[in-house]
């Protein structure tokens, strides 16, 4: 089972990856689209630079381990996000700064039980129920994740401790990239706000990219 979880975690990651992504956010108050470029090394280092729209172009976010910095080209300043603001949404989406940081490895923080297998009652996926380990610093009470027989996750439901569904994450549009099956689209839907969602689409994805030295440094943020 660990294998499955790790595979799910890594589905869009390589040891070094480079991607262009578009994000579409719809909330009750606004709807916007953004285009960005991202680089990642493992799960610990990520650099994201906004390309479009013009207002936000050049804004960059650097994550190294548990820290996040934002570079704002308009004022030419780099700001570290303090703990008090980690709850804030990232770039207006339904993902929080914290989500970015806590791309925690499911196996590390959760104990899983397989509650469904492919073939059982007509299902095509594994269904794993993840319960956080007693000391794990995660707010969820339970996460239910559906992983296909091809090791590609399709659905994750996040519940609070009372069993109420809080949000749903789906992976869609599975294609083959560099010999691997990769879902090119993720949609995050909050349960209490019908009609709202954040959709992330990979326009291009390159695993094992050549990343220059010092990509994940504060200086790199500014470039």
């Amino acid at each position: 089972m660990e294998e499955l979880l790790d595979a799910a975690d890594d589905v869009q990651r390589g040891s070094r990856s480079h991607a262009t992504v578009s994000m579409h956010v719809k909330t009750a108050s606004y709807e916007r689209g953004m285009k960005m470029e991202s680089w990642a090394e493992g799960a610990d280092k990520t650099l994201i630079r906004i390309l479009e729209p013009a207002k936000d172009a050049g804004v960059a976010t650097l994550k190294v381990d548990d820290n996040i910095w934002n570079y704002l080209p308009k004022v030419d300043r780099t700001l570290k996000i303090p703990a008090g603001m980690m709850g804030g949404s990232w770039m207006g989406s339904h993902f929080t700064n914290d989500d970015l940081v806590k791309e925690s490895r499911m196996a590390e923080d959760y104990t899983g039980t397989i509650t469904g297998r492919p073939g059982q009652a007509g299902a095509t996926s594994w269904v794993i129920e993840l319960v956080p380990k007693p000391d794990a610093p995660v707010v969820w009470g339970k996460v239910e994740i559906h992983i296909g027989a091809d090791r590609v996750p399709s659905l994750a439901r996040y519940y609070d401790e009372k069993g109420v569904l809080v949000r749903t994450l789906t992976w869609e549009d599975v294609r083959v990239v560099a010999g691997r099956k990769v879902p090119m689209r993720m949609v995050l839907t909050p349960a209490d706000k019908p009609g709202e969602y954040t959709r992330i689409t990979y326009e291009s994805l390159d695993f094992d990219a050549q990343l220059p030295e010092g990509t994940f440094t504060l200086q790199a943020l500014k470039r």
Binding site: N67, A83, D98, P134, D135, P137, V139, G141, K162
Partner: peptide
């Protein structure tokens, strides 16, 4: 009985989270 996560940067650098 419910759980919460507390996140802090006590000495300004490392962010720590605890349940």
């Amino acid at each position: 009985g419910d759980k919460v996560v507390f996140m802090a940067q006590p000495e300004g650098d490392e962010v720590q989270s605890r349940l």
